[in-house]
């Protein structure tokens, strides 16, 4: 699915990612944890194709293609989805318009028929129910005036609609109360399958009780300094990031 090799990236000349290696196979869920400022969002953004990051070394292969060579919209159509840590408010563009444009661009790319209005509405109703999103939110401007939790659910709604092969969730849990967290986790788990993979970026172990990962990686100082299974998350929770950073420095 995804193979990241020795990935280095910088912004405004400042090196942020300093040699990331990661392999994600179909069906796997990888959690990436790490202290603030360690480069988690940078990694997510580089994978989604945000332009202001410069990749200075390394490679990323996605389903046998050079991911870094693709425009962001092509990545999306090929099945890469980033749930933003800070979803963007776009006044004047309705949510439903964005959803429809998004799904149709994916379908068109695959050579499939675009959805007619009826089919689309039926589908969107079903997906909204999954994340317990009221219909009225569809007709509001994208994320405008949404609460933190509503924005995150909107991200999951988009994901559920587009059914990506590779979902990257960037701190989708932050700012959520336990009920909202369960709704988000349910949306994510519904999409889980043998041919889909996920990278779940989180700061807290809590989310991983609901979205159980196959692997956990710790990102610190722009590198993955430790990888393990889900017990690593529990250990981090108990001992804090200082513990593992200390170990890495000593090594």
């Amino acid at each position: 699915m995804l193979l990241i090799k020795d990935l280095h990236a910088s912004i405004d000349g400042k090196a942020i990612l300093k040699g990331i290696n990661l392999e994600v196979n179909p069906g796997e869920v990888h959690a990436i944890m790490g202290p603030n400022g360690s480069g988690k969002s940078t990694l997510a953004s580089v994978l989604a194709g945000r332009a202001n990051y410069e990749v200075t070394a390394g490679s990323v292969t996605y389903r046998d293609q050079d991911l870094l060579d693709m425009e962001p919209e092509i990545r999306a159509r090929e099945g890469v989805f980033l749930a933003f840590q800070y979803p963007v408010e776009i006044p004047g563009v309705s949510n439903v318009y964005l959803l429809k444009a998004a799904i149709n661009s994916v379908l068109k790319h695959r050579g499939e028929e675009e959805l007619d209005a009826m089919t689309f509405l039926k589908l969107i109703k079903e997906k909204s129910a999954l994340v317990e999103m009221k219909q009225e939110f569809l007709y509001r401007s994208v994320n405008e005036g949404f609460s933190g939790g509503e924005k995150k659910r909107n991200e999951i709604l988009q994901m559920a609609l587009l059914e990506p092969y590779l979902s990257i969730l960037d701190e989708t849990d932050s700012g959520l109360d336990i009920d909202a967290l369960k709704i988000v986790a349910h949306g994510v788990n519904t999409l889980r399958s043998a041919e889909r993979s996920m990278i779940v970026v989180t700061h807290y172990q809590r989310l991983l009780d609901y979205i159980v990962p196959d692997y956990v990686h710790v990102l610190a100082g722009g590198k993955i300094i430790r990888s393990g299974d889900k017990s690593l998350a529990l250990e981090l929770e108990a001992k804090g990031y200082g513990w593992i950073e200390g170990q890495a420095d000593a090594a």
Binding site: E73, L98, V106
Partner: peptide, 10 residues
């Protein structure tokens, strides 16, 4: 970038 990351071309 947000719109493009949803598959909408530039």
């Amino acid at each position: 970038f947000y719109l493009r990351s949803r598959g909408i071309d530039e």
